[in-house]
Design a protein around this nucleic acid. Sequence first.
RNA 1: GCGGCCGUGGCGGAAUUGGUAGACGCGCAGCGUUGAGGGCGCUGUGGGAGUAAUCCUGUGGAAGUUCAAGUCUUCUCGGCCGCACCA
Length: 839
Amino acid sequence: MENYDFRKIEENWQNEWESKKIFKVEPEKNKKKYYVLEMFPYPSGKLHMGHVRNYTLGDVIARFKYSNGFNVLHPMGWDSFGLPAENAARENKVHPKDWTLKNINTMKTQLKKMGFSYDWDRELSTSDDNYYKHEQKIFLEFYKKGLVYKKSSYVNWDPIEKCVLANEQVIDGKGWRSGAIVEKKLMSQWFLKITKYAKDLEKSLKDLKFWPEQVKTMQRNWIGESKGLKIKFSLDNKEKDVEVFTTRPDTLFGASFIALSSEHPIAKTYANKNKEIKNFIKKCQSNLNLQEEEFEKLEKLGIKLPFSALHPITKKKIPVYVANFIIMEYGSGAVFGCPAHDQRDFDFAVKYNLPIKQVIKPTENFKLDKAYTGDGKLINSEFLNGLNIKKAQEKISKFLIKSKKAKTEIIYRLKDWSISRQRYWGCPIPIMYLKNGESVPATEDDLPIILPEDVDFSKSQNPLKDHSDWKYTKYSKTGEDAIRETETFDTFFESSWYFARFCSPKSKDIIEKKEAEYWLPVDQYIGGIEHAILHLLYSRFFTRALYDCGLLSIKEPFENLLTQGMVCHKTYKNKKGEWIKPPESGEQKNENKIIIGKSEKMSKSKKNVVDPDLILNKYGADTARLFMLSDSPPEKDLEWTDTGIKGSFKYLNKLWDLIKRNSKDLSKVKINKNDFLKNNKYISDLNKMIHDVTSDYENFRFNRAIARIREFTNLLFNKEEELRKNNQLFKHLIENIIKIFSPMIPHITEEMWHVMGNNDFIIKSKWPVADKKFLKVEKIVVAIQINGKLKETLELPFNTDISEIQKKALSLPKIIKIIGNNKPKKIIIVKNRVANIVI
RNA sequence: GCGGCCGUGGCGGAAUUGGUAGACGCGCAGCGUUGAGGGCGCUGUGGGAGUAAUCCUGUGGAAGUUCAAGUCUUCUCGGCCGCACCA
């Protein structure tokens, strides 16, 4: 049998859809909108299978919603600033812009070949000045709102990318993209005040009802809210009080020292008075540029200060130390140490021979050779004695707050977002430095600050620094000489608001309010979980900040979030342990011993990638799409298999043949509904299938939807002869299958739709609705159990009375035999389901 | 260490939300078609016993709730992911 001509079919319909602009969309007041968005790609060269999966999922949802009467916004664009372009420029002597444009061109062609329903008129590219000039305006708005500041601090330095990374971009102490071990470097950087929104970003997570729990948990951890108490300890040197943050006020009576960060103001004061202290602090600070891993392994060290703190209740004197493990940025940069119940304090107390006073009696046997952190009853704690931890915390908090020695405080782990990057291929930060060294934001008249194209990459890391024509300028407000900021934005800046720009991609304004109000928020966002914190947290922050600047009227950008799993493939190694390509590549012939490894995320280094182009050429877009959807639910990893893709292709051919060989007769048939719409087996199965598959679409259970469609088409394959005798019924069944299958495999179904005698595009036809009157099943199989174990089944009319079921069940020969002389103790019957006889 | 998610045939995965476990597919086996291979078609396929009807057993393990547990509860083992000197 010959395979169907997917090349011809797919190309034809792609051209038809494009020339008729059926996916072009504008706001329509009387239509319900639906904004579906997939994370836009970085134009790295070619599409990979991860993209194919991501965009297939989005396309199915878009087409499904379209067919269900929604006004669907489904745009696509390019996250086109970033380092790979610069690296290519150095290695291959191509300009980043040319390299980027070429890649966009290639990938756009590939996307079109997949048949995705994008409104290409809305295409945007972030490295286009039409995009990033608005970003500079946003920066100025943020500046006005006080959300931007410059500060010198230890920052994460990626030695491979040769630029700074935000905290979120450091994964396990390594750069998120380069994988290089991150170093600490003291630098002056621009920051965005994301911490201003920490509370709201955390609090609102609970309202994101349609986000995966996992993502919300990750964000929650990242924001790291801690509720505690800030307690004042007065000092006997007549200086100001020390404020100490704690989440364990119940252990206050066990306090045996106070520890300050080396950057704490009091520590700094004493550094000037005492050389020893000064040296210690210096040592602590030199540790700050250690790699994270090493820093964590440091021994806990401290130096005693020449004064004491007074316990806020007992008034006893407590020694004060500067210690190397206290971080200034967290809490108040000072803690009280309770060695018996905190491991760090315990280690410190052992080292400096400080008292270890137990204040919580463990519930189980416990030897005090390490800190006890479990629950128990308070001891040695005056009025707290006998209480459990929670009660003790409540009581002492109340007491301290009442006596004005403490106040409740909530602190966050989240730090401000450093956005300066020492790189060329990004959006120039619209800042100028005046002669007096002052930095000022560019004025509206200075914008846009266009990235110069005539740059020389041979001189240094950042060619903007060497570009004097561009760098030296005038500040338009005063006309004086000025130097431009030569650093560019972190590229996560671009992706933090692109979803809003898609509403009015060509507007002269940053965001056209009317359009944004119609389309936003994004109803369904789809992308990889690797952006759980990075991009998704930044976008949530931006949306709030833009709201405060009056540019948006929503606070959360993405209503629903789907994080799709990775595309994996088996890995293979040869005798030498080198990665080799999978067998279907035909490149294993020369290897005599092949070791099959586990299935892992497709990656070039493991040689287990499958090129989408090859699949498109061999099987076509519909087969690729079908396979992407059929094997696993979207949020789980999908294992790419050669047999799987072949299976999908075979199935499409089989379906094609069935429809093709019957289409000649069926296309002429006119359906007169009353003639055949009886409650027969086919109609009831069809309606059940429509009902179930529609609900599967709504819940993104595409694998299950496909299983149900296949189940139904199996019926058609088996009963073809019989169905040919009732052409109206046959046509009705086939048209419904084509329609309900069309969001997943749009080209072949479009062709089938026309072959069956329809003239308009299939997407414009109405989605089938299950008729409830045909959903009723006439006969039902009831399970008959004895003591909960299945023994028999019984076919009965739908809704048979309980008493009738009981009568019938008890008269079954097999049941009689099992029951024997026993009298049933109890009989439980659930209508249409089950009868359980307890003996 | 803390937090989250998940364990179902040889494999990917279903299971009306507590009611016939294994849908659909891959793989495998047998048969048919074919000179052969591929392709296609039919049949079978959780495990064990039996010629068979049938019986026993079965959702990582142990216990519990229930007439009834893959589904709920507790413990336990294993895997994946996130956070972590965070006071």
